[in-house]
């Protein structure tokens, strides 16, 4: 059970990355390579707020959210808006992410930093397994976020507008939807959420500059399993990746955990390239 909790909470981290990818993907059909780095910055800001400045938890959360939202806004302005095609956006967002990694190394050093979480320090016992409060927090956060986003897209006008945009942005413009503003808003919101996520993942993964690349990849596998644009799919995908990784590390040895996740990615791409919850689209001339 403890192993399952560990897998689920790790999977929740990947699901959170996938949520970030999905928001941007649904809103602008582009792929934000710097998503995981935004969360990494969130974790570092949480560390600084908590440990260095000694702020109360609620202020730390707010601080992390605002800072990362600003970073995400800059990202949209600098690396996404000036670039027309999605292929080049991959390169520019990767570049932005690399800059963030480099800056984090310069500011916070390359040693992993332990980010504290509110609640009890000791692990608690639940259904015969042991888990920490931050692990429970991660799982709850990912499930709640996915549910809220799903409802938002279905019920709210702006949510529908975003979905309309993802289908056909030209048609959305003709319906009077401000596509650029919404795309910008999507980035800002991912930033806001990434700040929140950073606060939650910090205790699990530590704040470390190299966090970005591993998270980016596993988050992508979660996305590939679930299907692009599917929030529930990303959640399921994240949990699958987390469970596989923990079990492989436990029973095969730690050097096999990445390898088994990679094998899953290859299998999904070969057998079901649209993911479990994805849709196929016909090409147009």
């Amino acid at each position: 059970m403890t192993l399952i909790y560990a897998g689920l909470s790790l999977g929740a981290v990947y699901a959170l990355v996938a949520i970030g990818y999905n928001i941007v993907f649904v809103a602008s059909r582009s792929f934000n390579f710097a998503q995981a780095q935004l969360m990494m910055i969130g974790a570092f800001v949480a560390y600084t707020g908590h440990v260095t400045l000694g702020l109360p938890a609620i202020v730390v959360v707010a601080l992390a959210m605002v800072v990362v939202m600003l970073v995400a806004a800059i990202l949209e302005r600098v690396a996404v808006r000036p670039v027309a095609d999605h292929q080049t956006q991959l390169i520019t967002t990767l570049g932005f992410g690399t800059v963030l990694t480099g800056l984090a190394q310069l500011i916070w050093g390359s040693q992993p930093l332990d980010v504290p979480f509110f609640g009890a320090k000791e692990a608690m016992t639940l259904f015969g397994g042991r888990l920490y409060s931050f692990e429970l927090g991660l799982i709850v956060l990912s499930v709640v976020l996915v549910a809220v986003i799903h409802l938002y897209n279905r019920r709210m006008m702006s949510g529908l507008a975003i979905v309309a945009m993802s289908q056909d942005d030209e048609a959305a413009v003709l319906r009077g939807i401000n596509v650029r503003k919404l795309a910008f808003a999507a980035f800002a919101i991912t930033g806001l959420l990434a700040g929140l996520m950073g606060f939650f993942i910090g205790p699990k993964t530590f704040a470390v500059a190299t966090l970005g690349s591993a998270l980016a990849l596993k988050g992508f596998v979660a996305l590939a399993i679930g299907g692009f644009g599917s929030f529930y799919g990303g959640l399921v995908g994240g949990f699958v990746v987390g469970l596989v990784e923990e079990h492989a590390a436990r029973y095969l040895g730690s050097e096999f955990s990445n390898l088994s996740v990679f094998l899953i990615l290859i299998l999904v791409l070969m057998l079901r390239p649209t993911g479990l919850f994805g849709q196929t689209q016909e090409r147009t001339v």
């Binding site: 600098v78 690396a79 670039v83 390169i91 520019t92 570049g95 800059v99 480099g102 190394q105």
Partner: peptide, 16 residues
């Protein structure tokens, strides 16, 4: 020490 920042900037500026 700064190389990652520079490589990142190369990608960003080069792409844009």
């Amino acid at each position: 020490e700064y190389s990652l920042v520079f490589f990142g900037l190369f990608l960003l500026i080069g792409g844009v």
